[in-house]
Write a protein that binds this DNA or RNA. Structure first.
Lengths: 115, 115
DNA sequence: TTGACATATCGATGCTCATCGATATCTTTC
DNA sequence: GAAAGATATCGATGAGCATCGATATGTCAA
């Protein structure tokens, strides 16, 4: 049974007493997932919406082509930040609230451990 | 007089109501600064130290060459996350507490604005 | 089954960047 | 001023990635 390597699940607070190499890699991957303006915009659009958002409603505000937006949605999903839901032929995305709680814990230098 | 474009100073919360292109770029740059395992380790080492840390004490725990660590220290400093202090021929680094408060605000989806 | 349409994947391209050895710059000491 | 040692910069290299057009895959309606 494979260990879950989703960055949002195995990262560790920046102020963790003893950060392992694997935790440093996972934490960096989580940050890198947010290290692109298009992905920041996507997260912002989802964060300011009460409901899941159709992928088709992201191309125009993000300002990139459909394949590129799909690529970014995949990156965010792989990092564990997004939830995907199929509605007919449309794909709806929403933020993974738990992952975002963990992200907030990572950046909290008061550093309560998130295990 | 130039506007301050330091990512840690002009980024915006992920849940900001209206995120401008410039804010998205600044926020992404801040995350990208933390999107490398070596830089996560450096921040972790500084976060777990009461006092500023000599650059010479970072090469071994980070596991990279002196030029590479210097490169990463520069990236973190450019993002506004680090403070550099010269002590004789040694360079001492510490976390910029204000920048880290802003980072925490960025990831806080309750989204109080950081202007 | 066929057509229409939304999304994902593929292949190519050009740019960014992490890394290192070599070297320059800076600071102190003699 | 010269030597020693710490850090920053330079130049090169290889890997990763953002982007797009073209195409494949998936979904529904008729």
């Amino acid at each position: 049974m494979p260990v879950d390597l989703t960055p949002a699940l195995c990262c560790a607070p920046l102020a963790a007493p003893a950060l392992s190499d694997a935790q440093a890699v996972a934490t960096a991957e989580l940050f890198r997932a947010l290290g692109d303006p298009a992905r920041v915009k996507i997260v912002n659009l989802l964060a300011t919406s009460d409901e899941p958002v159709c992928a088709c409603d992201l191309y125009e505000p993000v300002g990139l082509s459909q394949p590129t937006v799909s690529h970014h949605l995949k990156k965010l999903s792989e990092a564990g930040l997004l939830h995907r839901e199929q509605r007919g032929k449309w794909a709806y995305f929403s933020l993974n609230a738990d992952a975002l709680r963990r992200l907030a814990a990572v950046t909290d230098l008061k550093g309560a451990c998130c295990s």
